[in-house]
């Protein structure tokens, strides 16, 4: 399929598939940018905004952030393995990465469930933050709306990433990749690192500031 290259190509040796993923990441980044800037604009128009940690559990999510960074590391290890021709290592590290992603989603869902179920303590904290109700829902003020929209949109990305890794594990187990053929793993890695990177931004904006 690869056509003889055109005379000038500013993108060097990057494969066509990789260029496609870079472009997708750029566009996805613009969507996140739109959400984050929109959220900031709404926040700027509010009289009060909860303090960091007043409602959200910073230490739990900090652990989740650490977990996601670790999966970026295992993703690098996966690519490293196959670049050396180690197919078993590839499968091992991809499985680690995928499990890390699932664990991350588990914690995020646990956090959501806890908020949606509500509690005395949560109600107390909500009142202190100037919000109403005993449950923290998407309809709990602009704060709840922004929180669920942005973390939810990111969560969907982690979910897509997990499915994407699972889809690559199938050919990986069948030995489809080798030391000379690992482009699809590199592309997968690009997406996963992007999702991690965005999370650090989301964590900072939603939880810490």
């Amino acid at each position: 399929m690869q056509q003889a290259a055109a005379i000038s190509d500013p993108f060097g040796k990057a494969t066509t598939g990789k260029l496609g993923m870079w472009l997708f990441i750029l566009m996805d980044g613009l969507s996140f940018g739109g959400l984050l800037i929109g959220g900031a604009a709404l926040r700027a128009g509010m009289d009060s905004w909860p303090e960091p940690g007043q409602i959200l559990n910073i230490s739990l999510t900090a652990f989740n952030t650490f977990l996601l960074i670790c999966t970026s590391f295992t993703m690098v290890m996966a690519l490293n393995s196959i670049q050396k021709g180690d197919q078993k290592g590839l499968v091992k590290f991809l499985t680690f990465t995928m499990s890390g992603g699932i664990f991350f989603l588990g914690i995020q869902i646990w956090e959501y469930v806890h908020f949606i179920a509500g509690s005395e303590e949560l109600m107390h904290n909500l009142v202190l933050a100037g919000l109403e109700g005993s449950k923290f829902l998407p309809s709990t003020g602009i704060y709840g709306a922004v929180f669920y929209a942005i973390t939810g949109f990111h969560g969907l990305h982690v979910l897509s990433g997990v499915i994407y890794i699972a889809a690559m594990l199938v050919p990986a187990k069948q030995g489809a990749f080798s030391a000379t053929n690992y482009d699809r793993i590199e592309i997968l890695g690009l997406f996963w690192h992007f999702v991690d990177l965005i999370w650090i931004l989301v964590f900072t904006v939603i939880y810490l500031i």
Binding site: Q3, A4, A5, A6, I7, D9, F11, T16, L19
Partner: peptide, 8 residues
Amino acid sequence: VRLRAPGM
């Protein structure tokens, strides 16, 4: 970007 024929 990628699939232009030589000379294009």
